[in-house]
Amino acid sequence: MRRASDWLLAGCLLVSAATVQADDCVKPVYLTLDTGHMGVAEQVAQVLRRQQVRVTFFAANERTQEGDGSLGVGPNAHWAAWWRARAAEGHAFASHTLNHTYWRADLPQPDGSVRFRVRASAGAQAGRDQIWDAARYCADIKAADTRLREITGVAPLPLYRAPGGKTSPALLAAAQACAGGGYLHVGWSAAGFLGDELPSDKFPNDLLLRQALRDIRPGDVLMAHLGIWSRQDPWAPAVLEPLIEGLKQRGFCFRTLRDHPDFRAWIAAHPSAEK
């Protein structure tokens, strides 16, 4: 008869083996989701729960189908409970600039500094070109970071994604040098562009799914949205779960950007953003 200590040891070994297996991620991919009109947000959340996949959300206060902002607060906090639920599930968060502000051009100044022509797609100045210095650009990144903290109670990562992925070396340097803690930019891999922004008549969902399953490689950063206004046949309801299942069948596993080798050192060096 086995002694109680033997059963205890066996149980510990099983728990240890299960932990090793859970952490044994040799083909990681990093799914990231940017805000949009939020029309598929709950469907996306359901898929992620079913598949037990954690992602990194890049959030801006964009206009939604409800007419409010995706990071609204106070009387416009329609999505606050949704964000809090994602935080409780262990997802990661990062800034997408509060007003979804696109870089359009560098404007070198006589004193050697650089200003930036930008255009926001949300907020009071939406659709208008503005000229910002580095501090003003940092403020827009920081504002989304702060809003995410207020809503979720979770510290965002010291990372950000410029809308459209549009940047310049000067803009990236400005973001990294932001006062109070800089932000490292995160783009996406070539195969990680999942195509949900493309017209569905030319790029149907089944084509996008096949391409992704064929081309994605370990270490890739994948990018899609929580709703794209211009796409007639929404991507997420048709593609997201088959994509996750197909990648799992090919031996891939999903991690947040906390674990990405290109960003781990930056995150560790900016602990204030993880408090």
Rank of each mutant, 00 (worst) to 15 (best):
R2I: 09
R3D: 13
A4Q: 12
A10T: 08
G11N: 06
V15P: 01
S16D: 11
A17M: 11
A18D: 11
A18M: 11
V20M: 12
A22H: 14
D23F: 11
D24S: 14
D24I: 00
V26Y: 11
K27W: 10
P28A: 02
Y30P: 05
Y30A: 02
L31E: 11
D34Y: 02
G39A: 08
E42A: 13
Q43E: 15
V44H: 06
V47S: 00
Q51W: 00
Q52H: 14
V55E: 03
F57A: 08
F57D: 03
F58S: 04
A60D: 12
N61L: 08
N61C: 10
R63Y: 12
T64V: 00
G67I: 00
G67V: 01
G69K: 06
G69I: 07
L71M: 00
G72W: 09
N76S: 13
A77M: 10
H78Q: 12
W82H: 15
W82N: 07
W83Q: 02
W83K: 08
R84V: 05
A85N: 13
E89Q: 12
A92S: 06
A94F: 09
S95N: 10
S95E: 06
T97W: 04
L98K: 12
H100G: 09
H100F: 08
T101K: 06
W103K: 08
R104W: 05
D106I: 07
Q109K: 09
F116P: 12
A124Y: 07
A124R: 15
Q125N: 14
Q125Y: 11
G127R: 09
R128S: 13
D129Q: 12
I131K: 05
W132P: 04
D133T: 06
D133E: 01
A135S: 11
C138S: 00
A139F: 12
I141C: 01
A143H: 04
A143N: 03
R147A: 15
R149E: 05
E150Q: 14
T152P: 01
A155G: 14
A155T: 01
A155F: 06
P156W: 09
P156Y: 11
P158L: 09
P158D: 10
Y160H: 13
P163G: 03
G165C: 02
S168I: 00
L172N: 11
Q176D: 13
Q176W: 10
C178T: 02
G180T: 02
G181S: 08
G182Y: 07
G182C: 03
Y183A: 00
H185D: 13
H185L: 06
S189L: 13
A190M: 06
G192Y: 07
L194F: 08
G195F: 08
D196Q: 03
L198P: 09
F203D: 03
P204L: 01
N205E: 01
L207A: 11
L208Y: 08
L213D: 02
L213A: 03
D215A: 15
D215P: 05
I216T: 04
R217Q: 14
P218L: 05
M223W: 04
A224M: 15
H225S: 05
L226F: 07
G227Q: 08
I228C: 07
R231F: 09
P234N: 05
A238V: 07
V239E: 01
E245W: 08
E245T: 15
G246M: 01
G246C: 03
R250C: 01
G251F: 11
G251S: 10
G251V: 12
T256K: 09
R258T: 13
D262F: 06
R264V: 15
I267N: 05
P271C: 01
A273W: 13
E274H: 12
E274V: 14
E274L: 15
